[in-house]
């Protein structure tokens, strides 16, 4: 595997990490997917201290589709100067980032803090389903939709908001019945 910097996998997707606040922001939305007070205590205090107005939005119970829709609506009504701050477990954070990028936000306008990365969203290239599974890069896990054993590849799709998974032994020769070697 190449080093993480040479892949599309963000550092905050393999280890919990938080980016610093952008103090030139004109306005921010603090979206949390963790049902605790942590973001209000940390980023919220910093935003208050920096005099940056913000909205705190709790999407801890939202589905991926709802997250994408809510984030899209949030961005479409914003002006340049806005920063989207995402706080919570990896899967909803990646879903929200994908929606933000789709709605024209730049990487530098998205500030991320992951609180949990052991469960990852994994896209199955065979059935196009997405499973949220406890796994890491190079693990082989079963697709929850089609049952295929998938290798977790070192690629995170910015568009899908998920890791890439594909059949780990697609090229392996299968010995079956009459065809078995003597």
């Amino acid at each position: 595997m190449p080093t993480l910097e040479q892949t599309s996998v963000p550092a905050w997707a393999v280890a919990t990490a938080g980016m610093p606040l952008d103090r030139v922001a004109a306005r921010a939305a603090l979206v949390t997917f963790a049902s605790d007070q942590e973001p209000r205590r940390t980023w919220g205090q910093e935003l208050d201290h920096a005099g940056i107005p913000y909205d705190l939005i709790d999407l801890s119970e939202a589905s991926k589709a709802d997250i994408r829709q809510a984030v899209g609506l949030l961005i479409d009504s914003a002006s340049v100067g806005f920063r989207l701050m995402l706080h919570g477990p990896l899967a909803p954070v990646l879903a929200a980032r994908a929606a933000a990028l789709e709605h024209s936000l730049l990487d530098e306008e998205i500030i991320v803090c992951t609180t949990e990365v052991s469960e990852i969203p994994l896209y199955c290239v065979h059935c196009t389903g997405e499973s949220v599974v406890r796994a890491a890069i190079d693990d082989v896990v079963t697709c929850l939709h089609c049952g295929t054993d998938l290798l977790v590849y070192y690629h995170v799709s910015r568009r899908q908001g998920s890791f890439l998974g594909f059949k780990h032994d697609a090229e392996a020769y299968e010995l079956t019945g009459a065809g078995e070697a003597a």
Binding site: D22, V24, A25, A26, R27, V80, G81, F82, R83, L106, D107, E108, E109
Partner: peptide
């Protein structure tokens, strides 16, 4: 100063 990131 109005919060525009360099990328814009």
């Amino acid at each position: 100063g109005a919060g525009w990131p360099p990328g814009r």
